[in-house]
C-alpha cells in the first residue's frame, strides 16, 4: 500500500492532493465540513455538515454522514471530476453524461485528505449455510463422529458431487452429506444415490446425513437403506468456527 495522508491540509495542499489522487486513479479519502448539491434526475441539497468523502480508483463517489450504511450522495464508476477553488473554498464536482448528473461538493474545512494506491485481488467468497457446516466439520470431524477422518473435501461421482468423503476409525469409507434444514426424504434419496454408486465397488461404504433434524419418513427411509443420520445445526458450526476452534477439548474426551 503506497500513499500519503495530510492532517489539516492547507487549501493548496488539498487541491493538489485531490487532483493528484483522482488524476492518477488512486483512492481519495477526505474528512471535512462540506455541502452537497445534486442536479440531474431531480435535485437535492444538503447543507454543511461533517462528513466523509471517498473517490475510488474507478471514479465512484461516496459521501457518508456519521451514521447509516448507505451514502447520502453517490455517483457510479466512470464519473468525471473537476476540482477548483472558488471564493476561497475547495469545490469538487463529479459529472456523469448519461443520464446527465452533477454532484457539487463544497468544502468549508478539510481535516484530513489521503491518497492511496490499494492493491486488492482477493476473491470475495460468501458461504452458504451448508458450506459453513462443512468448514466446521473439516476443522472438527468429531462433530459428526469420533475417529472420522476427511479424505476428500469433495468427490465427484456420476450421481453428483459428494460433500465430504471420509474414513471412519475402522477404515471404512464414509460419505457425509450436509443439509442446513430439516432433512427430508429427498435428502436421503440423494445420499443413497452416492452411496449406492460406491457400494458397487465396496459394500462396506457408509453414508451419513448431517442436518439439524430429520423428518420421521426420512429417518425410516434412511434406516431401510442402511444410512445414518447425525444431528448438527448451523448455529453450533458458527460457534465452532468463530470462538471455539481447536482449542476447546470437547466433552466426549471426558466421558466415563
Amino acid at each position: 500500500m503506497t500513499g500519503f495522508i495530510i492532517q489539516n491540509p492547507t487549501l493548496e495542499q488539498c487541491l493538489k492532493a485531490v487532483k493528484m489522487g483522482i488524476g492518477a486513479r488512486r483512492l481519495l479519502i477526505m474528512l471535512g465540513e462540506l455541502r452537497v448539491d445534486y442536479f440531474g434526475r431531480g435535485s437535492s441539497e444538503l447543507d454543511y455538515g461533517e462528513r466523509l468523502l471517498i473517490v475510488k480508483s474507478d471514479g465512484s463517489l461516496l459521501i457518508h454522514r456519521p451514521t447509516n450504511v448507505e451514502p447520502v450522495n453517490w455517483q457510479p464508476p466512470g464519473s468525471l471530476y473537476r476540482a477548483y477553488v472558488k471564493r476561497g473554498l475547495l469545490v469538487l464536482e463529479a459529472y456523469r453524461k448519461r443520464p446527465e448528473e452533477r454532484v457539487k461538493v463544497t468544502f468549508r474545512r478539510v481535516s484530513l485528505v489521503g491518497v492511496y494506491h490499494l492493491k486488492d485481488e482477493a476473491e470475495f467468497k460468501l458461504y452458504t449455510a451448508e458450506e459453513i457446516m462443512k468448514k466446521a466439520f473439516i476443522k472438527r470431524p468429531d462433530l459428526v463422529e469420533k475417529g472420522l477422518r476427511v479424505v476428500l473435501e469433495e468427490k465427484r461421482l456420476r450421481a453428483g458431487l459428494v460433500d465430504c468423503f471420509c474414513v471412519d476409525s475402522s477404515n471404512r469409507p464414509v460419505v457425509v452429506e450436509f443439509k442446513k434444514d430439516r432433512a427430508s426424504v429427498e435428502a436421503v434419496e440423494q445420499l443413497s444415490r452416492y452411496v449406492d454408486e460406491l457400494r458397487r465397488g465396496n459394500p462396506e461404504v457408509r453414508g451419513i446425513l448431517v442436518a439439524p433434524s430429520i423428518t420421521r419418513e426420512a429417518l425410516e427411509r434412511a434406516r431401510s437403506l442402511n444410512l445414518e443420520y447425525r444431528r448438527l445445526d448451523v448455529r453450533s458450526c458458527i460457534r465452532v468456527l468463530e470462538s471455539i476452534g481447536e482449542s476447546v477439548k470437547p466433552l466426549e474426551y471426558f466421558e466415563g
Partner: peptide
C-alpha cells in the same frame, strides 16, 4: 442434552 458441537451439556 448436548449441544451439537459437544462443548456443553
Amino acid at each position: 442434552a448436548m449441544d451439537p458441537s459437544h462443548v456443553s451439556m
